[in-house]
Design a protein around this nucleic acid. Sequence first.
RNA 1: GGCGCGUUCGUCUAGCGGUUAGGACGCAGCCCUCUCAAGGCUGAAACACGGGUUCGAUUCCCGUACGCGCUACCA
Length: 481
Amino acid sequence: MTNQQTIRVRFAPSPTGYLHVGGLRTALYNFLFARKHGGTFVLRIEDTDRSRHVEGAIENLTATLRWAGLDFDEGPGKEGAFGPYVQSQRLELYRQYANELVDTGSAYPCFCSPEELDTMRQAQMERNERVRYDRRCRSLTPEEVDAKMAEGTSYVIRLKVPMFGDVAVNDIIRGNVTFQLNILDDQVLLKSDGFPTYHLANVVDDHHMQITHIIRGEEWLPSVPKHVLIYQALGWEIPQYAHLPLLLNPDRSKLSKRQGDVAVEDYRARGYLPEALVNYLALLGWSESKDREFYSMPELIEAFSLERVGKSGAVFDLEKLNWMNGQYFRNLPIEQRMELCRPFLEPAGYDIRDENRYRKIIEALTPRIQVPVEAREKAEFFFSKHVPEDETADVFLYSESGQKVVHLLLEKLKDIEDVTAERFSEILADAKSTLGVKGKYLFMPVRLALTGETHGPELPLIAEILGKEECLKRLQEELRA
RNA sequence: GGCGCGUUCGUCUAGCGGUUAGGACGCAGCCCUCUCAAGGCUGAAACACGGGUUCGAUUCCCGUACGCGCUACCA
């Protein structure tokens, strides 16, 4: 780890159409590691599965990474010395190495059809044997191979995995891990459609892009021996590995859709702050030894180290993310809070054209908003009133004392030209002394009449925002008999 | 099934042989308060189990259990 060469890391997602929060964390750790050590952060698109091609996925991915503040140094749209950075544009390179591996005896063509393989697996299962490729094509003679080729039989290229021995790597996070080779299948390296599999493309690119540290999810740990074998067969240096603990669903299975939102854009769409998401994600699996919760990106870069990444999976806790987002939200200047909530209020048909009034609404709502999307329902009563129907209304609003309060307020409000929070407080104080009603018997009828709700921001604030006319109208509506 | 990885409060974690096992989210209570939040304070809540090693194990070693991941011409 203390070598002189420049550190180069990469985030290598497959373009599925959206960025997974687990992916974002992997990208983040790569990014932090690169920035911390003055290295280079590469984005590489692993689109070797033609059947999974998603239109616009790359643009979406880069846009989301940019939103999160993870700018890559090299990648699609930002060509460096090692491009292209999209694997489907590097097919020739993989083919070349697949052939080299065949030529040097480290790999071999396999002509088994999917149907054939399926039959083989069925038979193995019936005999209760381990399901694996039986290597029937491994012992084909050159003549047999030539004959098949001449026939035009489609084929794949498989890695010739040694029958015995083992492979050991020293993972930065997990320490020494050893794998027995005899249980390994002869991996397909090049598919019959000429595309490489993940294993080949990944190794070839990591080498060609001079990646020094492979920081990726733990789900890749079992493929390490396959990759090491390819590095060795090609005579290449093996990079450092760091396998990150998985992000988990509340039931501790690997974080997935169906158990909540996993697409970063889902969070973005709800108004989550990238700083909060990044801060939260950074702490899922990594921590400085201190009791510290809040980190800006520069602070993360300063504090981050792979050695302090944990080993066990971390449950993605939405509650804590929400709390953290609320913390960030409240610390924002009012203008930013207004901008963040705007996209949720305008579509709801709320009239927030009066900037001054809108500002007051957001100020009043801020303490009870964790995520901007919540602003819509929290602000609703400012724009339309629910009829208070529950028993609370009967007790406080439609009771004799409640009606008296409403009456008095109506009278008092008529006399003033403008409702300010201050004026309204005075009026309430007046009502308290003239009627001898206090506490919730004073406030609740007003709150219910004004908002239709039993809870919300401070009443004087609400009254000021509603304005005189609206206050009068809403109070009037609640007058009975 | 095989292989691999993992295991401190419900959750995220600190701890790197001797601690009242600390912090955060959440939860409960109290304060504030018309209410709901926010904020402040307080509290309940954890070392998976069994063997070693050691004067002494949450910490080191070995098992067991449990969990998760991988086991495709997907990544």
